[in-house]
Nucleic acid binder design. Structure first.
Lengths: 204, 204
DNA sequence: GTCTATACACCGATAGAC
DNA sequence: GTCTATCGGTGTATAGAC
């Protein structure tokens, strides 16, 4: 059997990727509510109506982008050396999230828009991926706690949710806007603040 | 001279307060973009058009609510015992923010809506208040650092911005929704996570 | 000053020509 | 499958009666 892929199909897939990339940028820039289908069409360079031949709704479009992000996250987790301590893995996943966002990626949490949140719950693919990511995070936190690396005062749920929240923390935007710190310094400062806190632990 | 305030004026002011309270609730619930003037009118119990006799636009309305919140914040800062260490004051202001939000208050940061952000920059009263609050925060952080209570790895800006961000951290909503922790436990866990971090500092 | 009614703009989604 | 044109719905803000 021949595996040749028709040219038209290739072109279609390429355009679909371009659409996802455009939505990625717009989503991280203006957010879901303020992003219009016309914005997307203009960014890709096609007519508004044509978008609906690829994605049947604005919600499906956003879900596709966020699902892609979750798959990337799982891939990053899989690529981590098995001998790293769990707490190190948690640190690295936060570091990756922040770096990814500074490169123009979408944050994990779509919590900025109630409308988007509600539609995502109905999206089977997204929910399945989100559950897998969430399970991986919880497993890591539990392992880190068994190893004695996690503070007793901070419950597991707080840690996992905070990891998501940090990925869309507006602090990043403000620091970038100020321009006093490099992207790398921003990432390291936020990782340090998250894992070791504001307080100095030098003295007693 | 008589200081009697006309009845009509009292009624007008009372209604204005009611409007601000309604917007406060809606803003913390659906956010700026999804909140419509009809929502506000329905919550207050007046017609949509009547709102514009009090506030000339939706943006002014939101700015009024957020300005009121900033004034409250300044009042809380003023009410703190002068002999508290600066780091203690920072901790308390975060604690107050989280408690205030759990009681139904609006988060400080309008960072969820680009549209709101842009209009606030043009609002003189709001900007002036925001600058005052920001200055107070920076002064406290500088004092805490001089006292040796702040980690060297975390710049002042990161601390101040994070204090704002924490006040509207979606982690709070998720923890409330899960229902495993009481409001008080949520506040303490987040304060602990923010100031002492995830990592256990028990061992070496 | 509060109401009803409406002007005006925008957006998501669809229809139909090519 | 991509375009142009448009429908239906919604939201801010205003006009005008009372």
């Amino acid at each position: 059997m021949t595996l040749k892929i028709p040219f038209r199909k290739q072109q279609f897939d390429a355009r679909e990727e371009a659409i996802l990339d455009a939505v990625n940028g717009l989503l991280s820039d203006k957010g879901y509510d303020l992003m219009t289908m016309e914005d997307v069409a203009a960014a890709v360079g096609v007519a508004k109506g044509s978008l609906y031949k690829h994605f049947s709704s604005k919600e499906k479009l956003a879900a596709a982008v966020l699902s892609r992000l979750l798959r990337e996250t799982l891939a990053v987790l899989d690529a981590m050396p098995a001998d790293w301590p769990a707490v190190r893995k948690l640190e690295e996943i936060l570091r990756w999230s922040l770096q990814h966002r500074l490169r123009g990626g979408v944050p994990h949490l779509p919590s900025t828009s109630r409308a988007l949140q509600r539609s995502l719950i109905l999206n089977l693919e997204y929910v399945a991926l989100a559950l897998r990511v969430n399970k991986r995070f919880h497993t890591l936190v539990a392992a880190a706690r068994r190893a004695g690396d996690i503070a007793a005062a901070v419950p597991d749920d707080v840690i996992v949710y905070t990891l998501y929240s940090r990925a869309c923390d507006p602090t990043v935007e403000f620091l970038v806007r100020d321009g006093k710190l490099t992207h790398e310094e921003i990432v390291e400062a936020m990782v340090a603040a998250t894992f070791d806190g504001f307080r100095s632990h030098a003295g007693a």
